[in-house]
Amino acid sequence: MKEVAAKAQKSALIIDATDNVAVALQDFKKGDQCQISSNGREEKIQLLEDIPFGHKLAIQFIEENESVLKYGEEIGKMKTAVKKGGWIHVHNMFCERGGGK
């Protein structure tokens, strides 16, 4: 998968227009500029952390306990607030369903 990621443009994918996250289409380093585009919306976001391929980045400020929206649906809530360009994963997001970490 890493080789696939290397060929992609420096961009992230917004799956649904109502989402507040985008998915990294390649490995990003802190400080990288990431291109997001969705239904006419074109923007460059500066990343605040390293974000690996396939992981989520906030495309706007998301408050503590606010829903994380991907696929136009809630996939969990924030344990702590995240700034635009921040990484969202199990360290700062929770979902009561499913077990695991």
Binding site: K70, E74, G76, M93, R97, G100, K101
Partner: peptide
């Protein structure tokens, strides 16, 4: 568990996200 370690490593943060 409904979601695996490999899923987490790949960037999925919850079973809801995986199933979606």
């Amino acid at each position: 568990h409904l979601i695996s370690t490999g899923n987490y490593d790949g960037g999925l943060s919850s079973v809801v996200e995986k199933s979606l």
